[in-house]
Design a protein around this nucleic acid. Sequence first.
DNA 1: TCCCTTATTGCAACTTATTTGCAATAATTA
DNA 2: TAATTATTGCAAATAAGTTGCAATAAGGGA
Lengths: 137, 137
Amino acid sequence: MPTWEETLSQAGCRITEPRRAVMTVLAQAERSLVPQEIFALGIKLHATLSLVTVYRTLELFEELSLVRRVHQDDKCHGYLLTAAGHRHVLVCEGCGRAVEFPGQDDLVALIARVEECTGYQVEAHLLQLVGVCPHCQ
Amino acid sequence: MPTWEETLSQAGCRITEPRRAVMTVLAQAERSLVPQEIFALGIKLHATLSLVTVYRTLELFEELSLVRRVHQDDKCHGYLLTAAGHRHVLVCEGCGRAVEFPGQDDLVALIARVEECTGYQVEAHLLQLVGVCPHCQ
DNA sequence: TCCCTTATTGCAACTTATTTGCAATAATTA
DNA sequence: TAATTATTGCAAATAAGTTGCAATAAGGGA
Ligand SMILES: [Mn+2]
Ligand SMILES: [Mn+2]
Ligand SMILES: [Zn+2]
Ligand SMILES: [Zn+2]
């Protein structure tokens, strides 16, 4: 698996200080962060970082699948670094800490059944679990 | 299962024209609608309806589990009438038409495994499928 | 290493989206 | 029908996200 720098380069994008800052912040985070939070932490790493750039960077990173967006009841636009190969996320409702887990196979049967019943052709899915992390129990 | 009017009454809330309008709009919708859309349709049923009231009504309805919020890549705040007993939703990426389907059981094994692996205690889940409806195929 | 080209940034201004205070209104209950 | 009080709509305030544009800084080649 390529590094994020390689992914950027191969996409013809430049590796810049603001992008480095955003990536570092996300890499060190132990829960999903909203743009505002990423900005607040990122400005410590790159003094001239702007919120606008955070938005643009997240959009780019999401396109390149470097980050994933998590949906919660309250805040809907938290961002999380994408773990390689994993697809699903489990978020702690106490502290927001999130872990990713594989499990594609578990849904295959379910999806087949739903397709049969509804006539829809399922192309993607969003599975997100909410719970309490060991820390918060 | 109680009607939405009963649910409201039992919660000590009043059954008003604006709320009736919002509920009617959602009941007639064949896809999830954002507040703005609900307002546009609702004002035809209740001429003095305001967008502010739509927001407040949706918040109330969501608390009472009368409506559910669907999360999509683009718009994250679509609302859908809650179908009794059902938990999951399948949204058409073409036209937005949505159907709900049961399937709690399918996730039991997966959730047990995830709890084991992560130490989290899973309390809820968000499973949303995206596909193409028969209409759009 | 220095230059050149051009992707990227940050500012400022703008557009939505959502929230809140408050007086007027309308749904209940007696 | 009247009294009570939840609810509404307006106006104004926030918050969230977007866009135009000139200044800046990657990074490929000389
Ligand atoms: Mn999955
Ligand atoms: Mn969302
Ligand atoms: Zn926690
Ligand atoms: Zn469709």
